[in-house]
Structures are given as structure tokens and as C-alpha cells.
Design a protein around this nucleic acid. Structure first.
Length: 596
RNA sequence: GCCACUUUAGCUCAAUUGGUAGAGCAGCUGAUUUGUAAUCAGCAGGUUAAGGGUUCAAGUCCCUUAGGUGGCUCCA
């Protein structure tokens, strides 16, 4: 079908048969090609409007494309419409994309002459004799291709934002201007994508956090969230949910100090490897570090006594508040903060109990994520270049994780060389209501700490053995997870998570007493309620409760007082008729219990 | 940290080319006693993020600081 018209002609001829075979993949590929061509067209437009600009790279990315440019004049978001107009002219001109293969030396000379130093630098790094030059109209660019046959095929595009980006991502290099855009093969898809972006903006947890009065930030503490009553309720409920699971699954819980002397951090290796990200404080000539992780403190607890293989796996949880110095530019709402609570746990295992322990954690992750309606994907990361331990240790450790995944028949992707320096790990990426993914849960096998802290247990043979240690977090950062939940539910939390579950709305203050009676009954059942005794009309009270996204509204007036009932209004289903108060309580308790 | 943008009442936003800072909502007071998404009236609310400069005159132009937003290899 339409697929190959998006390929550059030569490639298309080559791939013709295969293309037919793998339509889906090729649809993706054609979109990628289209976007890549869009980035070339944008570069052409920019060179027209900003002559003398130097081009970096301009790839297609997941949802669009970008081009990095050292612009001759600063480019701001206000300039984007003009650039779009110029791009449209290029599209209308129907320039064919043509490919030419030339020698690398010739290409270097060509781009030198064109005054494109970044391209020259790229060329010098290319390990081939021949390179491709793509041309459309007066514009030519070094490019692997493929491209669409003609500029006219770019039917739906939009430039989105301008930002800074270091040349080749290195802070020591020049800062270029990166212009982001997106393109689709039809206007409808583009519209849908832009609508999705709008939708994402509406459910931005920073916006909803303010509107729903959940949390705040202050200049006095950049990256340090303040939890307000309703937000803290959310956070506490998440912790409570996890604690219930801990009890079910044989965890114990501890709490270790927020700050500990530097000697600990020197021993743990944080002093050498993580100091840049830590906060420090000093008193009586002693240096203290505010903990960026809970593990070293937890290890001191482990070390307090002898451990037997009989207690393994030993599962020690800690909802620890950690602080990390994140660079000011990377802070982002609750997603990236400097102080956060982890649902941390350390599991100490023997080689015999390792696999079982991993399986248990994976099952817990599955249970928790499903409770929120998240789908998720799993990644296994293996030994990186710079790492500690023997090949054999890594082999056993990685196999332990892999066997657990295989045992549970879980699909996972392998990230070769992406593990931590101290061990392999399994990461969980959850998918939210509008298709975005977030990395949250992690299981990391640690071969470093048991060595450094000489952590042992007494085996069946009466001898000391090195213990195996797992770090695990399921929410990850509770702050971040809360942010994700806010966006996932767009602020409409399920009943069990709603800070206010029921609003009681008397039709007029004549019925306040009856409302108070109902309130009492609900409070007894620990239902979180909020009554509106203001002298406003019912419509106003409903609107207010509705905007606060309260799941249930109970309207009480003359009819209800007489019949001893409540009129139920659900935030989405609307008027739900009248029920006896006890009936409503039974219903809501059931819903609450099921976390549905 | 770096690049660009940004910061006006508690919140959302106005304020011609530089010429006395406004509105809605929220708050408070009063009236109203209300039936499924906003009752009416009045009051109060600001060193325009902070500091400096240019100017007869700065919310508006320039500089510094702080906060926020979008980004900072998804590798021709």
C-alpha cells in the first residue's frame, strides 16, 4: 500500500518483497522515514531563514524528530510558525529526495566548503570509505537515509518546542539549539497526537496537585515536596497497602536514621562513588551525610547479630526518606525530586533461596501494579563493562534472576551491559492510562555490600557463608509513584485511594442535623467524609464536590430525612437513586475492601 | 550545572508604541434556605519574584540573583 512511497526509492526496490511480509513493522519504519525527512525539510527551512547556521544531527525519535542547530540568530518558540511556513513552501515545491554515494574524503571537503563543521566532525568518525549525501532542492545533508521520494509527501507535521542540547550530549561541547517536531502520514493522526498532548497537559500531576490540594513546592526547598493533608492521605494509603502485603509475605520493617557519620559512607563506597549526589552536615568536627539510600543503615542492623540459614530469606523493609542532590535543571514535579520516600526492602538469601525470593518479589510487583490497573514490561540488565566480582559470580547471579522470570513465564527484554556495577537487575516499566511508560520497580542483586560489610550467615554445615543480598523497591519513589497515579487516574482516584471518599451535601441547612447523623455513621466505619454545611444552593455544592473529584456525594433533604435514606450521586455515573444508609455503607465498604 | 523561555492578588489571567496596576474565581461580611455542575450584594486583597540600572516616567527596556517550564545522544 502506501508504505513504500515513504521509502527512498532505491531502498524500497530492495526491500519490496520483505516490505509486504512485515507490514506492521514497515508502517513504523515508514513513519520513521517520514519523520527523518521532515527533519531534513526543517533544516532546509532553517538554513533559508537563518543563513549561516551550522547543522548538528537531526534524527527521527519515538514521537517525532528533532534537529540540533547552531543557529546564526537565536531561535525561540515564537519563530516556529515562520519555520513551519517555510517548510510548507518546501513541501509544496515537491522537491525529490535524491541520494548520492561519494567518498568520505570528498564529503569532508564538501561540508568544509559549506561551512558545516559538525558534519565534518561526524564524517571523520565514520568508519567507511563511502557515505551518502541526500539532496532536496538546494539543501544537501550527510545522511544514512532512507528518505521519502519527495518533499510533497510530508502531509502532516508540526514543530513543538525549542530547547538546548549539547553537541553529542557532552556538557563540555557547544550548546546547540534543538528544535522538536512531529510528523504523521495523515492529518488525522497528527491531530490525535496533539490532542493526546493536550490531554496529558490536563492531567499533569503538578497542575492537579495544586487544584486538588495534594502537595506544594516552595522556593525555600527546590525539589522538596510539601505534602498537604489530602496528598499525605494518598501517600499514607500507598504505604498502608504495601504494609499489608509485607505482613502477608513475611517481611519485617525497620527504620534507620536520616543521617549517619561519614565513616559509614566511606565503607559503603558512596563516599567515592556517590558523593556528588549527597547532602552533608557537620557538628563537633564530625561529618554526617544525609542518607541518599537506606541500605548502609540497614546493613548495620543485619550485622548486629549472627544469622542462620534457617531465617533465610530474611526480608527487611524500610519506608526510608532519602535525599539526593539532583541538578537544578532536572527537577520535575514529583517525578524528579531531591527528597523522597522509597518503599525499600533488603532481602538476604542463601543460594538455595535466591530464586524463590526473586519469584516472590516479582509476584508482589505484579499484584501491586495490577491493583492500580497498570500494564507493565520487564527488563533484565546484565553485567556492565565496569563492574566488580568474578565472571562466575555474575553468571550465578544473572541466572538466578533469569530463572525466576522464566519460571513465571514472564516476557522480558535483555539489556546487555546495563546492570549496576555491583550486580544484575530486573526493572519494571509500567504503562499509564495514556500509554506513557515509567520505570518504577526494581530488583537488584548486590554482590558489593556483602563483601564490603562482610555479611554472613551460618549454614547447615555450621560454617560461615557469604549472604546474597537483594535490593527491591516496587513503587520505587512513593512521591514519583503518586505523581504517576495522579496522571494515570487524571485525579479521579478509585474509592480506596480517594482522600475524601464521600461528600455529604444537605439541600439546605435545615437538614444539617441529619447530615451530621449520617456523618457519624460513616465515620464509625472509617469512611473519609467531608460535609458541606455552607449556605449555598445544592447545585453549587455538587459542582464543588465534583471538581474535587469526590467519588460519592450524598444528598440529604426532606425526602431523605423522612425515609431515613440518602440520595447517592456518583462523580461519573451521576444520580444513583436513594438507598438506606446502612445499605450504602455496606456497598461502599465492599468497594473499599476490594480496592476497585 | 548548561541553553531557551518564564514569574503580575491565594488561584487563572488582563494592562496600546514605557505614561496612575484590572477582572473572574477563591476569601471575608450580609441577605437568601435552596433538590443533582456556579444565588445576589458589599468588603478586603499588590513595593508587579528579589535586588540594581537606564529614563522626566518602568509591570513593560538592560544587568544580577532565586524559583518555575521545555530540553541537554532515541547517535549521519
Amino acid at each position: 500500500m502506501l508504505f513504500f512511497c515513504f521509502f527512498d526509492i532505491i531502498t524500497a526496490c530492495f526491500l519490496n518483497e520483505e516490505v509486504m511480509a512485515k507490514q506492521e513493522l514497515d508502517a513504523l519504519q515508514s513513519l520513521e522515514t517520514l519523520r527523518h525527512s521532515a527533519s531534513h525539510i526543517m533544516a532546509q527551512a532553517i538554513l533559508r531563514l537563518y543563513p549561516g547556521s551550522k547543522l548538528g544531527i537531526g534524527p527521527a525519535i519515538k514521537d517525532g524528530f528533532y534537529y540540533d542547530i547552531d543557529a546564526s540568530k537565536p531561535v525561540t518558540e515564537e519563530d516556529l510558525p515562520r519555520i513551519e511556513e517555510e517548510m510548507q513552501k518546501i513541501v509544496n515545491a515537491d522537491f525529490p529526495f535524491s541520494r548520492e554515494e561519494i567518498s568520505k574524503d570528498k564529503a569532508i571537503a564538501l561540508f568544509q566548503k559549506m561551512g558545516q563543521p559538525f558534519k565534518v566532525e561526524l564524517l571523520k568518525d565514520i568508519d567507511a570509505d563511502k557515505v551518502n549525501i541526500y539532496k532536496q532542492g538546494e539543501f544537501e545533508d550527510l545522511c544514512r537515509g532512507p528518505h521519502i521520494p519527495s518533499t510533497k509527501l510530508l502531509k502532516a507535521f508540526k514543530l513543538l518546542s525549542v530547547s538546548g542540547a549539547y553537541w553529542r550530549g557532552n556538557e563540555k561541547n557547544a550548546m546547540l539549539t534543538r528544535i522538536y517536531g512531529t510528523a504523521f502520514d495523515n492529518p488525522k493522526s497528527l491531530r490525535e497526537y496533539l490532542t493526546m498532548l493536550e490531554e496529558a497537559k490536563k492531567r499533569d500531576h503538578r497542575k492537579l496537585g495544586k487544584e486538588l490540594d495534594l502537595f506544594s513546592f516552595h522556593e525555600e526547598g527546590p525539589g522538596l515536596p510539601f505534602w498537604k493533608p489530602k496528598g499525605l492521605m494518598l501517600k499514607s494509603l500507598l504505604i498502608e497497602f504495601m504494609r499489608e502485603q509485607h505482613v502477608q509475605r513475611g517481611y519485617v520493617e525497620i527504620e534507620t536514621p536520616t543521617m549517619l557519620r561519614d565513616i559509614l559512607w566511606k565503607k559503603s563506597g558512596h563516599w567515592d562513588n556517590y558523593r556528588e549526589n549527597m547532602f552533608f552536615t557537620e557538628k563537633d568536627e564530625e561529618n554526617y551525610a544525609i542518607k541518599p539510600m537506606n541500605c548502609p543503615g540497614g546493613l548495620l542492623v543485619y550485622q548486629e547479630e549472627m544469622h542462620s540459614y534457617k531465617e533465610m530469606p530474611l526480608k527487611i523493609a524500610e519506608f526510608g526518606k532519602v535525599h539526593r542532590f539532583e541538578r537544578s535543571g532536572v527537577l520535575q514535579g514529583l517525578f524528579r525530586v531531591r527528597g523522597f520516600t522509597q518503599d525499600d526492602a533488603h532481602i538476604f538469601a542463601t543460594p538455595e533461596t535466591l530464586q524463590k525470593s526473586v519469584i516472590e518479589v516479582i509476584e508482589l510487583v505484579d499484584f501491586i501494579y495490577k491493583a492500580f490497573g497498570f500494564e507493565y514490561s520487564v527488563e533484565l540488565s546484565t553485567r556492565p563493562e565496569k563492574s566488580m566480582g568474578s565472571e562466575e559470580q555474575w553468571e550465578i547471579a544473572t541466572k538466578g534472576l533469569r530463572n525466576a522470570l522464566d519460571f513465571l513465564k514472564i516476557d522480558y527484554q535483555i539489556n546487555e551491559g546495563d546492570g549496576a556495577f555491583y550486580g544484575p537487575k530486573i526493572d519494571f516499566h509500567l504503562k499509564d492510562a495514556i500509554g506513557r511508560t515509567h520505570q518504577c520497580g526494581t530488583i537488584q542483586l548486590d554482590m558489593n555490600f556483602p563483601e564490603r560489610f562482610d555479611l554472613n550467615y551460618i549454614g547447615e554445615d555450621g560454617k560461615e557463608h557469604r549472604v546474597i543480598m537483594l535490593h527491591r523497591a516496587i513503587y520505587g519513589s512513593i512521591e514519583r509513584f503518586t505523581g504517576i497515579l495522579i496522571e494515570h487516574f487524571a485525579g479521579k482516584f478509585p474509592l480506596w485511594l480517594s482522600p475524601v471518599q464521600v461528600s455529604i451535601l444537605p439541600v439546605s441547612d435545615k437538614f444539617n442535623d441529619y447530615a451530621l447523623e449520617i456523618e457519624k455513621l460513616l465515620k464509625k466505619e472509617k469512611i473519609r467524609i467531608n460535609s458541606d454545611f455552607s449556605s449555598e444552593k445544592l447545585g453549587y455544592k455538587i459542582r464543588k464536590a465534583q471538581m474535587e473529584k469526590t467519588p460519592y456525594m450524598l444528598i440529604v433533604g426532606e425526602k431523605e430525612v423522612e425515609a431515613k435514606t440518602v440520595s447517592i450521586r456518583h462523580r461519573e455515573k451521576g444520580d444513583g437513586g436513594n438507598l438506606k444508609c446502612e445499605q450504602f455503607i455496606a456497598q461502599i465498604l465492599e468497594e473499599n475492601k476490594n480496592r476497585s
